[in-house]
Amino acid sequence: MSTVPEIHRFTSIRPPKVTFIGATAIAALGLIVGSWVFVLGADRVQSQPFFSVETLERGGRFLQALLGIGSSSTPAFAQWAAWQDTARLAYQTLAMSVLAIGIAALIALATFMFGASNIMRGELAPYRSWVWGSGFFVVRAFYTFTRAIPELVWAMLIIFMFAPGLLPGALALGIHNAGVLGKLSSEVVEGLDTRPLLALRSSGAGRFQVLAYGVLPQALPRFITYLFYRWELIIRTTIVVGFVAAGGLGLEFRLSMSYFHYTTVTLLLIWYLVLVVAVDLIAAVLRRMAR
């Protein structure tokens, strides 16, 4: 703009320039308005609209049922026996989350180097053949595929093959998170400082020695950070996968909801929160250890 003389700024006719950000802002606004129109319109055709006294009363009744108000029996969260029964489920849920992050870590560790463009196609590539280079696209396609399908959908697919239990749930969580972890770690490798690696190479290290002694040690600390970050998310999702894969707290939650045992639902939610907080604390301690 500054190069245009003052007088021409107003006289010359130019089409208004549409920037990418401008187009994004308009698209985002359109999406927001469209979505709310759709959601509110779909709500209007329901037999009972959301904003009504009936809905409010219904919500109130559910909250009372969760807290065990107005029921003659002792609520489940006030019974010691119920706590003992569900402790085993919480323990299983924790084991499932650890198994899941372990599976994800193993898959990601085995593949993440092959998903980095600088190793497969760039200056660090040990081979310059198109076979090696196309490996990059295979690995990245695998990550995109596993990442785009949510854990719960993976669980629905896997349960066709495996008997219900800890393993199918952990597999579903593991496959989805392998894609996430793999993509994040590949990007770490792509962002590495290549100068020490090239120095290693020029001082006589073999192609794969550079990967093992140069790339891996640089990338591992970040990998560990991501590992704990994903674990914190996995523990929140384990209960959800348990709905279909039948491991731990998830199945019990589903059954209690179907049998209207709402005070048990409250008890399971308490356990769930305990697990989430515990995992966050453990991850914080372990993360400090990695430094």
């Binding site: 959601v39 009972q48 959301f50 559910f62 909801m257």
Partner: peptide, 9 residues
């Protein structure tokens, strides 16, 4: 469960 099958849920 609390509010019914509304999209707002």
């Amino acid at each position: 469960v609390a509010f019914g099958l509304s999209p707002l849920a």
